[in-house]
């Protein structure tokens, strides 16, 4: 079973970031199903992990729910991330999660980027803020991303729906071709003879 994880950083309830995350997940599952691959989806709402993330920042101690979220990401075949735009960038909560995540956890992992904002004036936040972050994390970033302004939810002609479908189809193709490392129970060991030699 292909596993998709949706990480959303919306703070409202209901949240438009969560809503966009659900639409992207549904469309991605449909695209994978069309390719004959069944997929399951896990949603991680960072709002519920906010206190554990702050504690982790202060002490490096991951709480139980946070550890579970890290494990989900490390076991995912693809990750859909959605952040609201705060002051021209992703939200602090969004960044906090990826700062806390184990180094290398996003490496080679397909990612679909998405963001929500009050108006379309914020739409390049994906290219200017999210893309460098995920490039740095060595994730496989799918194109196109999806930005949803408040107005888009009422746009005529199903324009947002079409953009969601197009992005999900491209993301699904990436998921089908990628083989990201899956979290394993044991640490990787390099034999000491090699460590000595290479030291």
């Amino acid at each position: 079973m292909t596993r998709l994880v949706v990480i959303t950083a919306g703070t409202g309830n209901p949240s438009s970031s969560r809503l966009l995350g659900e639409r992207l997940a549904d469309a991605s599952v449909a695209a994978l199903r069309d390719a004959g691959v069944p997929a399951e989806v896990t949603h991680i709402e960072l709002r519920m992990l906010a206190v554990e993330l702050a504690n982790h920042l202060a002490t490096r101690l991951p709480g139980a729910a946070l550890r579970e979220a890290f494990d989900e990401v490390c076991a995912a075949d693809g990750v859909i991330t959605v952040t609201p735009v705060f002051n021209g960038s992703y939200s602090g909560l969004f960044k906090l999660f990826f700062d806390a995540l184990d180094e290398g956890a996003m490496k080679g992992r397909p990612v679909l980027l998405a963001a929500t904002g009050g108006t379309a004036r914020h739409s390049l936040v994906i290219e200017h803020a999210m893309l460098p972050l995920f490039y740095y994390l060595k994730a496989l970033v799918a194109t196109p991303p999806v930005f949803a302004a408040t107005k888009d939810w009422g746009a005529e002609g199903g324009k947002l729906e079409k953009r969601i479908r197009r992005a999900a189809e491209a993301f699904a193709q990436l998921v089908l071709g990628a083989h990201p490392a899956k979290g394993e129970d044991d640490f990787e060991v390099v034999d000491f003879a090699d460590l000595l030699g290479g030291g």
């Binding site: 640490f187 990787e188 060991v189 390099v190 034999d191 000491f192 003879a193 460590l195």
Partner: peptide
């Protein structure tokens, strides 16, 4: 893990 490996070695 490298340090656990060093101790073990």
């Amino acid at each position: 893990p490298e340090i656990a490996e060093q101790a073990a070695y």
